[in-house]
């Protein structure tokens, strides 16, 4: 067995007093507690909280083009998308849901998205008593995203062709607009008038 350490009583008492002095100093310093529900921390801009779907600011429609890049990028499979091919051979969104119980808030979906459609926002208060209510459907996600500011990135305003779209007219359907002049991003084609964007782009 190792021998017990020999203590020097004088330095021992001195250091006991030093310890008391440190805590006493802190006793009279200002507390750093943030009283959460009444005071709130201002979250940094990049903070990754709840996932939302962004809508076009003018039309109010979802930016999402149902390209499922986000679902493919998700490492945990939290994003579920159902879609079908519309008459114009472009993908139409049937349902879009994010399971917040398994989402790991890594932000890969946001990086994968080419259309400014999905974003992780600094909102963090979405706890719930019910697990089922944490699976957000498209309406919920859109509502959450309505007040989210975003700057449509120029790079993303010039999207690549929709991922799984076959050759033909559909590939060029989401044609790029002039990036610099038009700040509004190219949005998903509207179901009612599918031919319009194509003509506009050319």
């Amino acid at each position: 067995m190792p021998t017990a350490y020999k203590l020097n009583p004088i330095s021992g008492i001195k250091n006991l007093l030093i310890g008391l002095w440190v805590t006493l100093r802190h006793l009279f310093s200002k507390s750093i507690t943030l009283q959460y529900p009444t005071e709130r921390w201002e979250m940094p801009e990049r903070s990754r909280g709840v996932v939302v779907l962004l809508s076009d600011k003018e039309t109010g429609d979802l930016n999402c083009t149902a390209c499922i890049l986000c679902a493919k990028a998700c490492p945990v499979g939290a994003i579920r998308i159902e879609r079908h091919r519309g008459d114009d051979k472009r993908w139409k969104l049937d349902s879009f849901s994010i399971d917040n119980t398994i989402c790991c808030y890594c932000g890969l979906c946001q990086e994968a998205c080419n259309f400014d459609a999905i974003k992780l926002t600094p909102k963090y208060e979405f706890s719930s008593y019910d697990k089922a209510s944490l699976i957000y459907d498209v309406n919920r996600l859109q509502d959450l995203g309505r007040d989210v500011d975003y700057v449509p990135t120029a790079k993303k305003a010039a999207p690549k062709p929709v991922a799984a779209a076959p050759a033909g007219d559909a590939a060029t359907a989401v044609a790029p607009q002039a990036p610099a002049a038009e700040p509004t991003p190219t949005v998903a084609p509207m179901p009612e008038k599918p031919v319009e964007p194509k003509g506009e782009g050319e």
């Binding site: 805590t23 802190h26 006793l27 310093s29 200002k30 507390s31 750093i32 507690t33 009283q35």
Partner: peptide, 13 residues
């Protein structure tokens, strides 16, 4: 309260 303030917390509020 004291332990809170020793630790720069507030304790029960």
């Amino acid at each position: 309260k004291l332990s809170g303030h020793f630790q720069q917390r507030l304790g029960p509020m």
